[in-house]
Each structure stands twice: as C-alpha cells, then as structure tokens.
Simulated assay, not measured.
Amino acid sequence: MDMQLAVIGTIHSDIKDLASAPKMEDEAGAVRARIEIDPAYAEGLDGLEPGAKLELFTWFHKSDRSVLKVHPRGNKDNPVRGVFSTRSPARPNPIGLHRVTLVAVEEPLTLVVEPLEAIDGTPVIDIKPKPRGR
C-alpha cells in the first residue's frame, strides 16, 4: 500500500513562533497570510475565486508528536485531557484544520487567506472548499 503525504504549499505569515500563535482562527492574533503553492499542483487551483470559504489542512511540523494529554488551550488551570478531545497541535499525527476566506489569488501561485493562526513555514497538505449548507 502506497501511503505518502505530499506538501502542496507553504504558509508565509507574520506569526513566527508557537508561543505567539493564537489557538484558533477566530481569536485575536490570527492574521492575513500567503500560501505559496508548489508549481506541481498549479492545476488544482482552477476554480478558486476570491471570497471562497476554504478549509486548509496543514502539517504542524513543529508540534510534539509524543504528547497524548494536554491542558486545553495551554492553560494549566484547565484539567489535563487527551489530545483527541482538544484542538492542540501536539498529537501523534499533527494535522491542522483551518477555516479561512480566500482574499486574493496572486501570481505566481500564491493564495492570500484570512484569518489564519498557523506559523510561518507551516506546510499545507490540502485545500478544500467549505461544504455548502454547513
């Protein structure tokens, strides 16, 4: 069975480290960011228009893959819970889900989106339009 994960793009953001990153896209600090798409995936952008609501899937390349329990939101006052009941980036397979709006498509192969809480350099592994009616 061939099981590979392809990086289709890279996030360029003013958020430079985990400590300064908001926990979710609707928190203060989520920013407008650019996603540079790998040219091999250019045809996959066909049909994307500014204003589209998108779901980005990212690989949290700086997260701790050995963590199975966390204090939700990083707050030590919250009781420890299993990572699968939280949105923590620390988990065995650290895939991020981000709901954003496509602001612009710029050449060469750059999507401008907002709001995005991922840090600079985060790999993008998929882009999906938000399902209608949800």
Rank of each mutant, 00 (worst) to 15 (best):
D14M: 01
P79I: 13
P50H: 12
A28K: 15
A52C: 03
I125T: 05
P72T: 09
S88A: 12
P129D: 02
P39L: 11
D64Q: 12
V105W: 01
E27I: 09
R32I: 10
D120H: 15
V112Y: 07
E114S: 09
G133W: 08
V70W: 13
K23Y: 09
H61C: 14
P131N: 09
L54D: 14
P89A: 05
F84G: 01
P39K: 09
P79N: 10
S66P: 00
A118I: 04
R65A: 13
R91W: 02
W59N: 05
A52W: 06
G9R: 06
D38A: 08
V70K: 10
L109G: 09
V113Q: 00
L5C: 08
N75G: 06
P50V: 03
P89T: 10
E43H: 13
E55L: 15
A104D: 14
R91F: 03
A30H: 06
V83T: 09
M24N: 08
P50F: 06
V112F: 07
D64S: 08
G82T: 09
W59P: 01
A42S: 14
K130H: 09
G44N: 02
D38F: 01
V7N: 09
T58G: 09
D126F: 12
E43Q: 15
H71Q: 08
L111T: 12
D14Q: 10
V103Y: 00
R34K: 14
L111W: 10
E55R: 15
S63G: 06
P22M: 04
D77R: 15
A19G: 07
R32Q: 12
G44E: 05
L109F: 12
V113C: 03
T58V: 12
M1V: 06
V113K: 00
L18D: 12
A42G: 07
L5W: 09
T101C: 04
N75V: 13
M3P: 03
V83P: 06
T10H: 04
G44Y: 04
L102S: 06
V80G: 00
R87V: 00
D2Y: 04
V113Y: 03
M24V: 12
D17P: 00
V100G: 01
A42H: 11
L48P: 08
S85F: 10
D126A: 15
